[in-house]
Design a protein around this nucleic acid. Structure first.
Length: 483
RNA sequence: GGCGCUAUCGUCUAGGGGUUAGGACGGAAGAUUCUCAAUCUUCAAACCCGGGUUCGAUUCCCGGUAGCGCUACCA
C-alpha cells in the first residue's frame, strides 16, 4: 500500500504548481489504493502565517480531492530533534560553533563549492561537549563522507538513475543554533516516521534528494521511492512566482474566474504528464484510471498566459479555458445550473432556481467560464434592458422602415401565439413571408429588441424563457426607439 | 563559479534507427445555422547546433549552446 504526502509550507497562497503536486500525489494514491497524507511543513516560524494555512485549505477544498491523514510538522519537533541527535550519536553529524553568516556574502565571495567549516568538523567530541555544556550556541551539521570517489545514489521514477559525488555535497545543517530543525531534517524525519513510500514533488528538490538519502541512511531508514515532477514555468521561462507573475499563479484566481475544479485539475494534469493515447478531455475518474508515474515527462511545462495580462481572457492558458468549456458542456443541465446560480446571485441578480434551470440550456454552449453567464444571459436577469444603439435594430440590407415594419408585425403576431418554440417558429416565419422579408431580417430586429444586442442565444428558445409579457414590452420599447 | 536536470509546431504533447514526424489548444479559410456559439472540413506550423556510431539518425553516444533548478542555521 503506497503512502504519499503533499507537504506545503504555509508561506503564501496555494500555488498552481503546488496544486499540481497535490493532484499527482492524490492520483497516485487513489490509483494504487494507497494513503494520501497532508502535512503542513511549518518549521519556519518567521515566514509561516495562519492566513496562508487558511488559503491553502481553501484552495484544496475547492479542488475537492480528499486526504486520509493530516499532520503539522511544528507539532513533531521532538521527533525531529530525536532523529538529529541519533544521527549525531552515530557520528554522522557534528556541532558547528561558527556564528551564522549571511548567504549573500557567501555567494559573492565563493568561486567554488562551499563544503564545510574545517575547524568544526574535526573538533574532538570532548571539546564539542565542553563548549556546548558551557552554553555556546551551535548548529548541528551533517558530516558528509569525504572519502575520494564516494558517491550518493538513488533511482528517480521520472529522471532515472541519479549519482552524485559526495565531494560535491556540502555539510548541510540539521539543527539551527536555536535548536529548531531545518527543512531537510524535519522532512526526512517525518517521511521516515510516517512511513512514506513515495515522495512525489517538484523537480526543484532533485538535487536536495542526495542530502535526503544521506539523512535517511544515517537515521537507519530505507529511503522511499522518489518521483520528481517537471516544474511549471511562466511564458518567460522562469518558475511561476507570486512576485513576478501575480494572481495568475494562485488557485483561487481560477476558482473566482469561473473555472470548474475538475477542468482545472484536468488542465494541470496535462502539464508534464500524458496518458499517451491522445486523450485530453478527462474526468477525475478517468485521470485516476490512466495515471502512472511512467507518463510523467522531464522538461518544464509553460503555463501559457499572456505576460502582462490585461483581460481575464489573457490571464489563463487558452487550453485551460477550452477544457473548462468542454467540462461545462459535459455537465448535465441541473449540475451546471446549480453552479451558475451562485455566480449570478453574487453579481446581484435575483434569479430563481427554476428560471436558472430554464436559462442554462440557452447558454451552455456559449460560455467558457462560469462567470460568462453574466454576459451571456444578462438580458434575462433584468427587467429593464440597458440602453442600446437603435441602429442595431436595423436588419441586414434593410432600413429603419423595415425595422419598424418588422417589429410592429412581430408585436401583433406574438400577442396571439403560444410562447413555445414550434409555434413561435411557425408564426414568425409566416410573418416574414407575409412582409416579404427574409427570415433573418425578421429575426434580427426582434433579437435586438429583446436582448439589446445582435449576438445572443437562438431566438425562439430565448422568447420562450423570457415570456410573452416581457417580450411584448421590449418590442414596444424598441418601436418607440426608432419612431 | 560548482553540481545537476532538460531540449519535437507559438503552447501542451505522441513517437522513435528507415514515418507523408501524429494529436490537442491557439491561428487562418470554408461548410452549416435566425445572429453568436457549438459542430464538421481544410490549411499553415516542429525534431537547438556540431561531431561521431550506422547502409541510414530527429531517435543512440560525445561535445557545444540555451533554459531551468540546487548551491542558507528558507522551504
Amino acid at each position: 500500500m503506497p503512502r504519499v504526502r503533499f507537504a506545503p509550507s504555509p508561506t503564501g497562497f496555494l500555488h498552481v504548481g503546488s496544486a499540481r503536486t497535490f493532484i499527482f500525489n492524490w492520483l497516485y494514491a487513489r490509483r494504487n489504493k494507497g494513503t494520501m497524507i497532508l502535512r503542513l511543513d511549518d518549521t519556519d516560524a518567521e515566514r509561516n502565517t495562519q492566513a496562508s494555512v487558511d488559503s491553502i485549505f481553501e484552495g484544496l477544498k475547492w479542488l475537492n480531492l480528499s486526504w486520509d491523514e493530516e499532520y503539522k510538522q511544528s507539532e513533531r519537533i521532538d521527533l525531529h530533534r530525536k532523529t538529529a541527535w541519533a544521527i549525531f550519536e552515530k557520528g554522522f553529524a557534528y556541532r558547528d560553533f561558527t556564528p551564522a553568516h549571511s548567504g549573500d556574502a557567501e555567494k559573492s565571495g565563493a568561486q567554488g563549492t562551499w563544503l564545510f567549516n574545517p575547524g568544526a568538523r574535526e573538533m574532538s567530541r570532548a571539546e564539542s561537549d565542553r563548549r556546548a555544556g558551557a552554553g555556546e550556541p551551535f548548529a548541528l551539521r551533517f558530516r558528509v563522507p569525504r572519502e575520494a570517489g564516494e558517491t550518493v545514489r538513488f533511482t528517480d521514477a521520472v529522471y532515472g538513475e541519479q549519482v552524485k559525488l559526495a565531494a560535491d555535497i556540502e555539510d548541510f545543517a540539521l539543527l539551527r543554533s536555536d535548536g529548531m530543525p531545518t527543512y531537510h531534517l524535519a522532512s526526512c524525519a517525518d517521511d521516515a516516521d510516517l512511513r512514506i513510500s513515495h515522495i512525489i514533488r517538484g523537480q526543484d528538490h532533485l538535487s536536495n534528494t542526495f542530502k535526503h538519502v544521506l539523512i535517511f541512511e544515517a537515521a537507519g531508514s530505507t529511503p522511499p521511492q522518489f518521483a520528481h515532477l517537471p516544474l511549471l514555468v511562466a511564458p518567460d521561462g522562469t518558475k511561476l512566482s507570486k512576485r513576478r507573475h501575480g494572481p495568475v499563479v494562485s488557485v483561487t484566481t481560477y476558482r473566482d474566474a469561473g473555472f470548474l475544479s475538475d477542468a482545472f485539475i484536468n488542465f494541470l494534469c496535462l502539464l508534464g504528464w500524458s496518458p499517451k493515447n491522445d486523450r485530453e478531455n478527462m474526468s477525475v475518474q478517468e485521470l485516476t484510471d490512466a495515471f502512472s508515474l511512467e507518463g510523467i515527462n522531464r522538461s518544464n511545462a509553460v503555463v501559457n498566459f499572456k505576460e502582462p495580462a490585461t483581460t481575464p481572457e489573457e490571464t489563463f492558458d487558452p487550453k485551460a479555458v477550452w477544457l473548462n468549456a468542454e467540462h461545462i458542456r459535459a455537465l448535465p443541465v441541473e449540475g451546471l445550473s446549480r453552479r451558475l446560480l451562485p455566480v449570478v446571485r453574487v453579481a446581484g441578480f435575483d434569479v430563481s432556481e427554476e428560471k436558472m434551470l430554464r436559462i442554462t440550456p440557452l447558454i451552455r454552449e456559449r460560455i467558457k467560464l462560469l462567470s460568462d453567464v453574466l454576459t451571456a444571459a444578462d438580458f434575462l436577469f433584468v427587467d429593464q434592458l440597458p440602453p442600446y444603439d437603435p441602429a442595431e435594430l436595423i436588419p441586414q440590407k434593410g432600413d429603419t422602415t423595415m425595422a419598424r415594419k418588422v417589429l410592429e408585425k412581430a408585436r401583433e403576431v406574438l400577442a396571439g401565439v403560444e410562447f413555445k418554440h414550434d409555434p413561435l417558429d411557425q408564426a414568425l416565419r409566416a410573418a416574414a413571408q407575409e412582409l416579404g422579408v427574409k427570415a433573418g431580417q425578421m429575426f434580427q430586429p426582434i433579437r435586438v429588441a429583446v436582448c439589446g444586442r445582435k449576438n445572443a442565444p437562438p431566438l425562439f428558445e430565448t422568447l420562450e424563457v423570457l415570456g410573452k409579457e416581457s417580450t411584448l414590452a421590449r418590442i414596444d420599447q424598441a418601436v418607440r426607439k426608432i419612431a
